[in-house]
Write a protein that binds this DNA or RNA. Structure first.
Lengths: 252, 252
DNA sequence: ACCTGAACACCGTTCAAGT
DNA sequence: ACCTGAACACCGTTCAAGT
């Protein structure tokens, strides 16, 4: 054997096979040797294309991130932007769909963008949309973060499937309210999607209230010129106090 | 050597050492052999106390879940219950604090309660609180799920720390809005906490609106006798439609 | 009952050797 | 440039042997 006329492997072929393996058998099944076998090649061959297994995983993760639709953050032909709550909703659904298609990779993906271009593009688009809608930069940072918390959490694992189907688990003395929990797994798809949609609407409605109190109410008028200072109006609920030290921190 | 007069190990000692190791060096550092070395014992000794490494991990995870405060779901002396939004807020903060103290274990923990008693107790308490507040069972299930999504997502990894501190990463042409992103990691604690608090308030405010529309507005009056049917009032935003098939599914 | 060392089938990664 | 087999230091787990 040794070097063939036409290469047996390519980064793309390796990444595709790795994602298939992770989807089918979980993150633990992804070993360099197993992957090499799947590609009909010997273990060390992979090191001609990726320096380490981590670098390979990074490529797999960024491939998934690349499937997320970001078009709702682009301006229309006349320079018109989609209103931020609509854009955020559409993006969150696309983001969740991309992750939910590959749940086993989410723990890796959720570690942050790192140096992965698709993940950075995503963070840039979300932050830019919010700042241009008039959100102060500190607030825009937090909203980007909390949206990611929610989407990543919802794709990390099925809530419903986490409850064993064995009814014997749910002793009525220990868990008086879980009498029907053994039936959760059977409806997992609908329950997880319903929970995601309910949470997404609640989040967006809550953020819209905050927007009215702190952005429109503060007189910046929703233009691109955000002041960076947040007037927590006295008319608030008293629970919207800023976290210490984040009033006008960094961007993104 | 062989068997000593007084046992060298106990499940508790093993679990404590395992959590320390995961906290200090990450999930990948937790190998049975490494853990055994840490406990001054040979590798196979652990198998006298746990059948598999997975069983050991389960015990570590449930130990962390045991640190979550559930007292806000208990009734007071006169049978009075804390209002559900307050209870949910206090619980979410305690839940996040417990997970954020051990972020490296969150990917395992987020897989669902399984058969772990502390995780099941938690699910039972949250679901019971919501149902007794008048939420239909299907809705209570989804709210339990979406709260877990948010808390798990927020503890899974630091949003802020996911952005490299190397300013060279953020090319202005590729990422026009990330010019300050290299400073995120330095404020990670405050940013992550601010994002969590902002999201928690938004979520609770959004859910309170839904409660008024579907529970109080539907006339069940907040008693324990929930009907299970959700009247999505025509006065809604038009975006609160139920996910298909989850109208009156299972409990928990 | 509880610990030990030896052994088995795995890992990620390096490296010299082949074309 | 791109693949190979051999080798190194690791894994989780089993098992016979010790007390």
């Amino acid at each position: 054997m040794a070097r063939p006329r036409t290469p047996l492997l390519s980064r793309e072929r390796i990444v595709t096979a790795a994602l298939q393996l992770v989807d089918a058998e979980g993150l633990a099944a992804l070993s360099t040797r197993r992957l090499a076998t799947e590609l009909s090649v010997s273990g060390p061959s992979l090191y001609n294309h990726f320096a380490t297994k981590d670098e390979l995983l990074d490529a797999v993760v960024d491939g998934v991130m690349g499937e997320v639709d970001l078009s709702m953050f682009a301006r229309g032909p006349a320079g018109a932007a989609v209103p931020w709550p609509e854009a955020l909703r559409d993006w969150a659904r696309s983001y969740r769909a991309a992750l939910a298609a590959h749940p086993n990779i989410v723990p890796v993906l959720a570690q942050g963008p790192g140096r992965r271009p698709n993940a950075l593009r995503l963070a840039d688009a979300v932050f830019g949309c919010l700042v241009e809608a008039g959100w102060p930069r500190g607030q825009a940072t937090r909203i980007g973060a909390l949206m990611r918390y929610f989407v990543a959490g919802s794709a990390l694992a099925s809530f419903a499937a986490g409850f064993p189907e064995d009814a014997g688990v749910y002793d009525a003395t220990d868990y008086p309210h879980l009498g029907e929990a053994h039936r959760l797994a059977e409806h997992r798809g609908a329950i997880d999607e319903g929970a995601f949609e309910t949470g997404l609407e609640a989040l967006l409605e809550g953020l819209a209230l905050r927007y009215e109190r702190t952005v429109r109410g503060a007189g910046t008028g929703g233009t691109a010129e955000a002041t960076g200072s947040v007037r927590t109006t006295g008319a608030g609920t008293g629970r919207t106090a800023e976290a210490p030290g984040t009033g006008r921190t960094t961007g993104a």
